[in-house]
């Protein structure tokens, strides 16, 4: 076998080896993203903190055009939202979530991962969206069993009653 046939045969053989190597690398070796006996809790929500508002005085209202006479005046900036997460009685998260946006007028956000060994957990969650209040706007407690590789998502929706476990 000479000339072009030789090149065709040898070239195909070499190309095949390269493609096989590519196919192998396309799946192997496997990557262990999370240890086998570990589960994941993801706490993520978007919640707006309150604004600092006060009532306008009668003089202030009278100075405004009729269509602009809102009784309250609020700062543009929102208050941070405070959130706590306890696992088996230990606080693993206690954080003020600042408002978003250049002027701080947007909602506070969080997306936090907790990689935990599979097993039973007592979860306690507390959220406060008004720094002026004592105590919390919403709390939730739950006993859960995390299976290996389980993904527990915790969301928050004030209108739906508070913390939501997915």
């Amino acid at each position: 076998m000479t000339g072009r046939w030789h090149h065709l045969a040898m070239g195909t053989l070499v190309s095949l080896l390269v493609v096989f190597a590519v196919a192998w690398l396309s799946e192997r070796p496997a990557w262990q993203s999370l240890p086998e006996d570990v589960a994941l809790i993801r706490l993520s929500f978007t919640q707006s903190g309150v604004r600092n508002c006060r009532a306008r005085t009668e003089e202030e209202l009278a100075a405004l055009a009729r269509n602009m006479r809102q009784k309250q005046i609020c700062d543009r900036r929102r208050a941070p939202v405070y959130v706590e997460l306890d696992l088996n009685g230990t606080t693993v998260l206690a954080r003020d979530l600042p408002p978003t946006g250049l002027s701080g007028s947007g909602p506070s956000r969080i997306y936090q991962r907790f990689e935990l060994p599979a097993g039973d957990y007592d979860i306690a969650l507390r959220l406060r969206d008004d720094p002026a209040m004592t105590g919390f706007t919403n709390t939730a407690e739950r006993q859960i069993t995390l299976e290996p590789a389980e993904n527990l998502a915790i969301d928050y929706d004030a209108e739906a009653g508070g913390f939501i476990f997915h």
Binding site: R28, P29, W31, Q32, E36, A149, N151, A153
Partner: peptide, 14 residues
């Protein structure tokens, strides 16, 4: 399955 987390994945290394 978003209810679980992929732990061991056959990744495309290229």
């Amino acid at each position: 399955d978003l209810a679980t987390v992929p732990q061991r994945i056959g990744i495309d290394w290229l």
